[in-house]
Design a protein around this nucleic acid. Structure first.
Length: 417
DNA sequence: TCTGGGGTCCTAGGACCC
DNA sequence: TCTGGGGTCCTAGGACCC
């Protein structure tokens, strides 16, 4: 049995590179990648954070996630481009299509990352690292953007390898290279070590991945519980999950949330925002063929206090009105009158909607479900704005918030490796 | 740090049952 | 109600990923 070979391929500064390529293809002489630039939202509507930065922008210490305002302060000539998600979907797919030519087993991990299982391909190709270079160069030449490829024997090591030096590089972290290439890195660089875990580890003088790897796993488990065991395993390169095709990923929940462009101070407006969020959640729920047994509402106040409220429902539902009604009740129970900055609606505990449990309960939603299906099909044919509720007229609230990903077979981010 | 939006999983505490 | 222990379900919140 030959050993496993896994590639992790990561598009460099994905959104920004894709936007840059798109502009060059449409005759723009400027390559955004060569100047300080970012993809980011609009501060006027309070969506102002940096999603992706160019390498020249990085030289100004601009960080992903920081506000557009502070980024502009660091670099006054910074070019800011709004995100264009449908373009990203296309680029992501074109990227995956090339990878498919090299192995029958690939997994999309996020919009800009794929895993490829290259085990047992030795008969076709002799050196996997050579193939990694070929893939990298093909994507650059044919699609115009660069990627990093990480090569190893499992997913975590391949992923850690692809994050080493960027851009346009191939790296390996084979097990015997772990001490030299991975253990020297600061603890924050390890997959699944975020801010909170890094702080706890550093408080115990665990500063590098190597410190963690060589620590007593029993002690790690004692103070970080199961998450401690997980990161200790990762630090040692222990991980064995398969690359799995994501034909139809088993989704766990569907949510939609938004930062509202103004602070909501009254119940009526809040309910209207919840309706606009519910419209897309419910549409996506019906499109995916599920009903939900749990509805949650989340809320952020103007002082950035977050809280949430959820309710289990005993008849699984997929109706816009039914979900909205519960969302409003949850909001009313949660809200203490503070100005509201952000609202979210989420459904989970999904089950197939082809079963008749729906009709068995106190409220017969059958008629409502027929209406929903009709509206869904009208929107599908004539666009999302073709039908909307009159309550949104002159309300200052958009009739529908967020995309429904209609016919775009976009696999949502999968969970852990 | 005037700070988005989509996910997943884990944990802790309370209610309830036997 | 001077009172145990184990199990499951529900809810809220936290942590992580991109």
């Amino acid at each position: 049995m030959s050993k496993r070979i896994i590639f992790h391929i990561d598009a460099n500064s994905a959104y920004l590179s894709w936007e840059a390529v798109h502009r060059l293809q449409h005759g723009d002489p400027l390559d955004l990648r060569t100047v300080p630039s970012v993809i980011g939202g609009d501060p006027v509507t309070r969506h102002g954070i940096v999603l992706t930065k160019s390498i020249p922008a990085k030289k100004y210490n601009i960080e992903t996630g920081e506000s557009i305002l502070s980024a502009s302060a660091k670099c006054p000539e910074l070019i800011i481009v709004r995100p264009n998600y449908s373009l990203y979907m296309q680029c992501s797919k074109a990227f995956g299509d090339i990878l498919c030519e090299y192995s029958p087993l690939i997994e999309q991990y996020s919009i800009d990352e794929y895993f490829v299982d290259f085990s047992n391909m030795g008969r076709l190709y002799k050196d996997p690292v050579e193939v990694a270079y070929i893939i990298k160069d093909r994507i650059k030449n044919e699609l115009g953007f660069t990627v990093n490829v990480g090569v190893s024997t499992n997913k975590i090591l391949a992923k850690m390898a692809s994050e080493l030096k960027k851009p346009d590089m191939v790296h390996t972290i084979f097990p015997d290279e772990i001490p030299d290439k991975m253990w020297v890195l600061p603890i924050e660089e390890l997959f699944m070590v975020g801010r909170a875990t890094a702080k706890k580890l550093r408080s115990r003088s665990i500063n590098t991945i190597g410190d963690l790897a060589n620590y007593d796993p029993k002690l790690i488990k004692l103070f970080l519980k199961s998450h401690g065991t997980l990161v200790w395993n990762y630090a040692n390169g222990y991980e064995a999950s398969p690359v799995r095709e994501n034909r139809r990923p088993m989704i766990k929940g569907i949510g939609n949330s938004t930062t509202i462009s103004f602070d909501v101070e009254d119940r009526r407006t809040a309910h209207l925002v919840l309706l606009s969020l519910t419209e897309t959640v419910a549409t996506r729920l019906r499109q995916s063929g599920y009903c939900a047994r749990l509805v949650s509402v989340s809320l952020r106040t103007n002082e950035f206090y977050n809280c949430s409220h959820q309710r289990k429902i005993y008849s699984a539902i997929d109706c816009t009105n039914a979900i909205h009604e519960i969302a409003c009740e949850l909001f009313d129970e949660l809200w203490k009158g503070q100005p509201v900055r952000h609202l979210g609606v989420r459904v989970s505990e999904l089950c197939e909607n082809d079963f008749q449990q729906i009709a068995l309960f106190e409220k017969n939603y059958e008629k409502q479900r027929t209406v929903d299906r009709t509206v869904d099909s009208i929107r599908k044919r004539f666009g999302n704005g073709s039908v909307f509720r009159s309550s949104f007229l002159n309300s200052g609230v958009r009739f529908s918030s967020g995309g429904t990903m209609d016919d775009e077979e976009y696999p949502m981010m999968s969970s852990l490796l």
